[in-house]
Design a protein around this nucleic acid. Structure first.
Length: 249
DNA sequence: CCGAAGATTGCCT
DNA sequence: GGCAATCTTCGGG
């Protein structure tokens, strides 16, 4: 109970100087903190995924360094923040020495500090998007149930939203005690028997590699979803019909 | 320059 | 359980 959730000191950079699949399970139970202008939020990490850089077909760094993935090739312990699906941010922590790209994606967590602020950030997002249909139909907004504490940072994009992590934190040094974004050691070590592993979520390549790690039984762990390719937008009235008619269900 | 996919989420039926 | 929202990134022409 009392005091048990106080995080340890900021992790040393050497912690990240290993392969991502070794670092990943050790990040469970650690605490990511962000001090922003509107307040501080901290999250205890409950679910992560390892990405092995140029050697991993599922990694953004597969095939080499680009402007987007440059942080992963730099000094370990820095945040690789990327934007996806036109609306979501996700945060990784870089591993391996400079020159070698790899990272651990922080997928889910439990808010341990600043829950009201985290809830406000999540609610603001819900209210500001998806209201096109409301305007077009003239319908009034439906009263939205409060976001449960469990869902505040459940899933990589929601974790970023709760923490207020955006593009400006790309490259932030999470091992610097003076940084606004910091990663601290666990308040309590997670017993090895409580660490489970399985396939990574939502990737199309190397989906069989079991580099997702989570705390067994934790309610904030996001559900597993296999990769679902997005259907090509059918904009014209006439269909392309260039597939010869064969389709597999 | 243009096209296509994407380490997701939330609302729809 | 299906699918729309929304835009950056990167590779190919």
């Amino acid at each position: 109970m009392g005091g048990a959730l106080t995080p340890g000191p900021v992790l040393p950079r050497g912690f990240f100087g290993r392969a991502a699949q070794e670092v990943a399970p050790d990040l469970l139970g650690c605490v990511l903190s962000h001090d922003a202008a509107d307040g501080a939020v901290a999250v205890l990490i409950t679910e992560v995924e390892a990405y092995a850089g140029t050697a991993d077909p599922a990694s953004h760094a597969f095939g080499g360094r680009t402007a987007r993935t440059a942080v992963m090739f730099g000094e370990p312990g820095h945040a690789y923040v990327y934007f996806t699906y036109g609306m979501h941010f996700c945060v990784n922590l870089g591993c391996q020495p400079a020159g070698t790209a790899s990272a651990v994606l922080l997928r889910s967590g439990r808010v341990t500090e600043g829950a009201p602020l985290a809830a406000a950030r999540r609610a603001a997002r819900a209210a500001s998007s998806g209201d096109t249909a409301l305007r077009e139909t003239g319908a009034r907004p439906v009263a939205r149930a409060a976001i449960s504490e469990r869902d505040l940072a459940r899933g990589p994009a929601r974790l970023c939203r709760a923490l207020g992590i955006g593009r400006s934190l790309n490259g932030a040094d999470a091992c610097d005690p003076g940084s606004p974004l910091r990663i601290s050691g666990p308040a309590r070590a997670v017993p090895a028997a409580d660490v489970q592993r399985g396939p990574r979520v939502g990737i199309s390549r190397a989906a069989e590699v079991p580099w997702r790690f989570w705390i067994a039984g934790d309610p904030t762990v996001s559900p597993y979803r296999p990769h679902a390719p997005r259907r090509a937008a059918a904009k014209a009235v006439s269909a392309p019909a260039r597939d010869g008619g064969t389709m597999q269900p």
